[in-house]
Each structure stands twice: as C-alpha cells, then as structure tokens.
Amino acid sequence: MKRVLLILMIVWGGGGKLFYEGMNLSPENKTSLSWGNRFEQQLICGVLGGWRPVVADLAWLRVTTSWESRQWSRLHENIRMAVRMQPESLLFWDIGAWHLAWNASLGERNNRLESQMEKRHERELYWIEQGRSLLEEGVRYHPNHFKIWLQLGLLHQERRHDFGAAYDCFLRASHLEGAPGYVARLAGYALEKQGDRARALEYWNDLLERSSNPADRTLIEKRLLKLEKDSMISPLKPLP
C-alpha cells in the first residue's frame, strides 16, 4: 500500500514537473541567440548564481573609472564583461554602446598624443564600429525592446551617417511596445536626411493617418508643410 502511494507521488509529481517544463519551452526573447550563446549564459547563471548581476555591476563600475581615465581598451573589455554577465540589462548595451561610439571614438579624434590625423580617424571609426557591433549583439538579446533599436538607429544616424540603416532601426523601434511618439518621427527625419524625399513624404502621410495623438499630429503636419515648402511639392500627392 505504502509502495503504491509512493509510486503515485513520484508519477504525479514527476508528471507535473514535465507538464510545467513542456509549457516553458522557448521563451521568445531567447530564440534569436545561438545555442552556444544560450548555453554560455545559462552556465554563467549556474556557476555564479546570484552573484552574476553583481559581477556585471562591478565590471560596470570599472567601465566608469576607465571612462574617467580615458582607457578605452579597458573600457571596452569591461563593457563586454558586463554584457556577458548580465545581457538582460538594457543599460549595459545602451550606455556601453554610447561609451564606445561616442566617448571612446571622440576621445580618439581629440587625442593630441597622436600626431597623425589619419590614425586618429582610423581609431575613431574603430570605436564607432565596436559600438555598432555591441548594439547589434544587444538586439539579439532584446529584439522586442524599442530602446536598443532606438540607440542603434541613433548610432547609425549620428556616428555613421548611414541614414538608411538608421531609418530601419527607428521604424522597427517605433512598432515596439512602449515606444514614445518621437521614435516614429525619427524614422521620418532619417529618410529626409537620406535625401529620399518621396519616401519621406509617403512615410509622413502614412504616419499622419496612423497617428491619433493630437500633439503628434500637429508635429507631423508641420513637418509635411515644411517639406512642401522646401520642395514645392504638394504633400497630399506623393512623388512618382
């Protein structure tokens, strides 16, 4: 009798365990990562346990001190360490990329210890690319978070002047949950900066149709009027 009861306990409890695990398959935000990355992340979780975020934070503290002492390679290493330890933290990807593509690259541009301008420029571009690469990795961990796409868009726009890529990122960010209205407008500005006025017009008209917020609508209408003024083309008719 006792044995039967124990078997029932094992089967019922084990069945419940497997049922729950079956329901827990494939959290959507992990699916864009490679198996290697996922195993690595889970292993770090297991080995460091609760200290994983703390180790990430300690690395991040070193990011701050490296920035203050303008040690860009050390800064890069610690950013990488922080994101590896806690890729869930948006802050690390976001601010980390800003440190690389803005602070480190501008630091190299203004590096008076380097007399050759070519070399300075080369180093500047290098850090911009490191920032881009970091964010591109970040979007794999956070494909559904608008902030990281927004930051990637800004990097393409401000630092790489690749307005097409910036437009794609802003557009993607604007469709994600929690994205404020200005993100969608940034996509329009990016198209304008790219020089593709026809697409820009089409985009702004489309955005106007979709927008329900009066403040947003006013801003979009103003933009359309400005475009019309600049190009003398009616905003109501898209360019052929």
Binding site: R3, L6, M9, I10, W12, G13, G16, K17, F19, E21
Partner: peptide
C-alpha cells in the same frame, strides 16, 4: 510557474526520497 514547478518537484522528490530512505 515558479510556485507550481516547486510544488510538483517536491512531491516526486519526497516520494523518491522516502522510497530510498525506507
């Protein structure tokens, strides 16, 4: 999820532990 998962696991663990301990 975390509560249910813990609950079911404890059930089979107690069953198996008792079996082995007995």
């Amino acid at each position: 999820p975390s509560f249910g998962y813990t609950f079911f696991n404890l059930f089979w663990i107690l069953g198996l532990s008792t079996w082995l301990f007995e």
